[in-house]
C-alpha cells in the first residue's frame, strides 16, 4: 500500500471525529423527562384534557401547531372544532399558553432532552418568563 502511514493516520482521525459525539454523551444518559401539567389553569379544569386527547397531542403537537398556524394566519379561520365537537380559539399565545403557562416545565423539558430548538420563541412570548 502506498502512503500507508498517512492513510492509517487519516482513518484514525476520521474514526475519532466520527465517534466523539458518542463518547461525549457516554454515561450521561438521563431519565426521560415528564413535562409538568401543574398550572393554575389546568388545575381548575374538570376534565384534564387538551384540545385533543393526550396521545394525539404528544405524538402530533408539532404538525398540529403548524396546522393551527396556517389555519389562523393564512386561511383566516380562528376557530377549531375538535373530535368531540368542542370549539377552541386557534392561538398559541392565547389558547395553548393560557393553560400551559409553564414554558420551562412543559415545553423546554422535552425539547432540551430531545435536542430540538423550535423557533416558536423567536416571536411568541413566554407568559411567565422574566425575559421576552
Amino acid at each position: 500500500m502506498y502512503d500507508s502511514g498517512k492513510v492509517i493516520a487519516g482513518l484514525v482521525v476520521f474514526a475519532a471525529l466520527f465517534l466523539c459525539p458518542f463518547l461525549y454523551n457516554h454515561g450521561s444518559m438521563t431519565a426521560q423527562p415528564k413535562p409538568s401539567l401543574d398550572t393554575p389553569a389546568i388545575k381548575k379544569l374538570a376534565a384534564k384534557r387538551c384540545v385533543e386527547d393526550r396521545e394525539f397531542m404528544v405524538a402530533h403537537h408539532m404538525q398540529f401547531l403548524n396546522e393551527w398556524r396556517d389555519e389562523a394566519l393564512r386561511n383566516g379561520n380562528r376557530w377549531y372544532r375538535n373530535k368531540a365537537g368542542e370549539k377552541y380559539l386557534i392561538s398559541l399565545q392565547n389558547s395553548c399558553l393560557k393553560c400551559h403557562s409553564n414554558k420551562k416545565e412543559f415545553c423546554d423539558k422535552c425539547h432540551v432532552y430531545a435536542g430540538v430548538k423550535p423557533y416558536c420563541w423567536d416571536c411568541h412570548i413566554d407568559p411567565n418568563g422574566s425575559k421576552l
Binding site: L92, Q93, N94, Y119, D122, C123, H124, I125, P127, K131, L132
Partner: peptide, 21 residues
C-alpha cells in the same frame, strides 16, 4: 425582543407575539 427588553418601563402585550429578526 432585545430592543423591547432594553426599553425602560416598557409594557408588553402578552397576547400578541413579537417578530423575529
Amino acid at each position: 425582543k432585545v430592543a423591547l427588553e432594553k426599553e425602560e418601563g416598557r409594557k408588553i402585550n402578552k397576547e400578541f407575539p413579537v417578530r423575529t429578526r
